[in-house]
Amino acid sequence: MAVNTSNPSDLRQLVADGYNVLAQPYLDWSKGPDGGGNGGNDTPLERHFDQFLSLLSSKRDETQEMQVLEIGCGAGIPWTSRVSKALAGNLTATDISHSQIELAKTHLLQCDPPHSNVTLLLRDAMELQFDPNQLDAVYAIFSLIHLPQQDQKTILKRIATWLKPDGLMFMNFSGQLESSDDAEVWLDGKTKMYWSSLGLLSYDQALEEVGLSVITRDVATVVEDGREIPFVFYIVRKR
């Protein structure tokens, strides 16, 4: 299916529609051996997420609850759950897919005990609105890669505005330069999905331009469905 890349909202809707179908299959796949270590032990993602949590914990302010945003919470496990448990504050977890949000409700709000510091929002990332200097941290795991290239640049600029000075962000991107005009069939052999990437040097430049200083930048190979795919993992801090 040809995708009109001149209309980013169409691409984002394609991603939403795809995950509405694939929410549970994606969760099952991500836990398995072909899922690129999304939640596995001793993976680049796991190691850098642990570092992000450690840095977040060190920012704890006993006089004020922290405000953290997750872009693309998926089913709410494992990452949303882990941040919720570690966080002295409030976590706003967003996703563009209503099926993902329903799974997240089951895993986070209908469990015993519920994650009372989590607010779930069904929201397109490009429609999120926060005040300048409102957020202590933002994280986005395998989510910004679903935005068209220009949207990725725009959301990084917005996030830099939302973060407080010294605020943190953790994110990952594909290390390959790619901007596809066609969605790809994924997971179930019939449902379309879309990804794009600016390429490594462009991400470095984009972060610098919006005032986000790199703490960690690691290019690591992730094996998905038997394919080796380079991803870059960033932890950054607002200057």
Rank of each mutant, 00 (worst) to 15 (best):
V3I: 15
V3W: 09
V3M: 14
N4C: 08
T5H: 00
N7V: 13
P8F: 08
L14G: 05
Y19P: 07
A23N: 06
Y26D: 00
W29L: 01
G32A: 12
D34L: 12
G37R: 09
N41H: 09
T43F: 09
Q51F: 11
S54F: 11
L55E: 13
S57W: 01
S57F: 03
S58I: 01
K59T: 13
R60W: 01
R60I: 07
D61Q: 02
D61V: 06
D61N: 12
T63D: 10
Q64K: 15
E65A: 11
L69Y: 03
E70M: 05
P78Q: 03
S81E: 07
G89K: 05
N90H: 07
S99D: 11
L103N: 04
T106Q: 15
T106H: 13
L109Q: 06
P114R: 00
P114Q: 06
N117C: 09
V118C: 02
V118K: 01
R123H: 13
M126W: 03
F130W: 10
D131F: 10
D131Y: 10
P132R: 14
P132E: 15
A137Q: 05
V138T: 02
A140F: 03
I141P: 00
S143G: 06
L144N: 02
D151A: 04
Q152R: 08
Q152S: 08
L156G: 00
A160H: 04
P165I: 01
D166A: 13
F173Q: 15
L177A: 14
L177Q: 14
D181S: 07
E184A: 08
W186E: 06
G189W: 11
T191P: 05
M193K: 09
Y194M: 01
Y194P: 00
W195V: 09
S197Y: 08
L200Y: 10
S202L: 13
D204I: 03
A206G: 07
V210P: 01
V219Q: 15
V222K: 09
E224C: 14
D225M: 07
R227S: 11
F233Q: 11
I235E: 07
V236F: 00
R237W: 02
